[in-house]
């Protein structure tokens, strides 16, 4: 689902139940990361559940490609949203993208606290850091 679809769908929801069901469904659709990549080096620190992040840089398209996975459904749903915002975008776009505004718009902050160990913020920080150090990516 692309970002516009996600925003539109969220717009229909008032109750936390609907939002969470949707987030969990998004999580169920998220492709899994290969088991071989679920290694400590790929773990994002600061998440209560485990979150693995693998990034590569496509120098032809000048895009960062991200694969992120988690062992928790809700976190996987959040990952889908984060990926809709960031995946296959240029380093410059990622560095300047205002993800807090997106979370505000989805009213995610109210319901999905950034501090509650879901590691959303740690994930975002890791992606932003990658965008400013693409030399480290292959």
């Amino acid at each position: 689902m692309n970002l516009e679809d996600i925003k539109e769908t969220f717009g229909f929801f008032d109750s936390w139940e609907d939002k969470y069901r949707f987030v969990i469904d998004l999580g169920k659709e998220l492709p899994n990361l290969d088991e071989a990549h679920k290694i400590p080096a790929n773990l994002v620190r600061g998440c209560q559940s485990q979150v693995w992040l693998v990034a590569s840089y496509d120098s032809q398209q000048q895009q960062i490609e991200l694969v992120i996975d988690s062992d928790a459904h809700i976190v996987r749903g959040l990952i889908s949203i984060v990926l809709a915002a960031y995946n296959k975008q240029s380093p410059d776009y990622i560095a300047h993208y205002d993800i807090e505004a997106l979370f505000d718009e989805l009213a995610l902050i109210q319901h999905l606290s950034l501090t509650r160990g879901n590691g959303l913020r740690a994930m975002v920080a890791r992606i932003q850091q990658l965008a400013t150090s693409i030399d480290e990516l292959t």
Partner: peptide, 21 residues
Amino acid sequence: GSHPHDVGTLLDQQGIAVRTG
């Protein structure tokens, strides 16, 4: 089929404080 964190989050939405992890 779920992570403790999922359950903890959904309980929190209902005003119920438990610990997960």
